[in-house]
Design a protein around this nucleic acid. Structure first.
Length: 259
DNA sequence: ATGACAATCAGAGATTGA
């Protein structure tokens, strides 16, 4: 089973890119962030015509997440538990019904800039809520994964210019510590089980020729439960997508499971 | 220190992103 996470930076702006990618690379499951669309406006027809079940959790203008699957999705839930007043569409869960049921959590973690400030407080609180949800799912001892745009640069090696991020919400010590607290629960960061060292990025800014200079950061991640990690075959970044026409500033990250 | 670039909503330029 091939699963991809992809921050598409607007489903309307990226629709042709998305359709071409789905047709050519054919993920069994796609976990999308920043759809920037309300559910009613999401262009469903062409995606469903490619054989996908589509579940969205959108809002106007900003944020928004979606799950696409060629296998049936069940028990869909929208929103991250823990704050009834949170109106930002950043989280969706569903169970992919394959040979073995797999719970998929798609997330778009808050950016948090400027830090310090209320946006950073929201980011850290959101990460604490994600930690609580991970604890609940881990107690079930079943395969699940949490994937998406974490907006966290885990280590200096995950940035081309780490010194330029040290005051940024993506790399501040509290952000990294909160990310490590997720790993300490027993979740596996899929990419780092197979690939070590620097030079591997999933985001390049549109500005200042960041792609051409390979000035990137790695902020899109797959975290796997132990039962899911047992099924992992490989995890790769599809960097070439950043060089295409009208690209997103993020590229897809792929996880292949023995399912 | 600032802006650079892109998307959105709206119909210009502010807001957001990372």
């Amino acid at each position: 089973m091939k699963i991809a996470t992809f921050n598409i930076n607007g489903v309307k702006a990226r629709f042709e890119t998305l359709i071409t990618w789905l047709r050519e690379d054919a993920p069994d499951v796609a976990i999308l962030q920043e759809i920037k669309s309300v559910d009613e406006a999401f262009p469903r027809d062409e995606i469903e015509a490619l054989g996908y079940q589509l579940e969205t959790h959108g809002q106007k203008s900003f944020n928004g997440v979606a799950l696409l699957s060629k296998l049936p999705l069940e028990d869909i839930t929208r929103g991250l538990p823990g704050d009834e007043g949170d109106e930002q569409a950043r989280y969706i869960e569903a169970t992919v019904m394959g040979k073995t049921a797999l719970r998929i959590c798609g997330l778009y973690l808050p950016n948090g800039n400027p830090a310090p400030g209320p946006k950073y407080d929201y980011k850290l609180a959101w990460m604490e809520r994600l930690h609580s949800r991970a604890e609940e799912l881990l107690a079930l001892e079943e395969p699940f994964l949490m994937a998406g745009d974490y907006n966290v640069i885990p280590q200096d090696e995950d940035a081309a210019k780490p010194e330029s991020w040290h005051e940024d919400a993506l790399a501040l010590p509290q952000s990294r510590a909160a990310f490590r607290r997720l790993l300490a629960l027993g979740l596996t960061e899929a990419f780092r089980t197979q690939t070590h060292g620097g030079g591997h990025y999933s985001f390049w800014d549109y500005q200042a020729g960041a792609w051409q200079r390979n000035n990137g950061i790695r902020i899109d991640h797959f975290l796997l439960s132990p039962e899911c990690a047992d099924l992992m075959l490989k995890c790769e970044i599809q960097a070439e997508m950043r060089g295409r026409e009208k690209p997103s500033d993020h590229v897809p990250v792929w996880l292949t499971l023995d399912l």
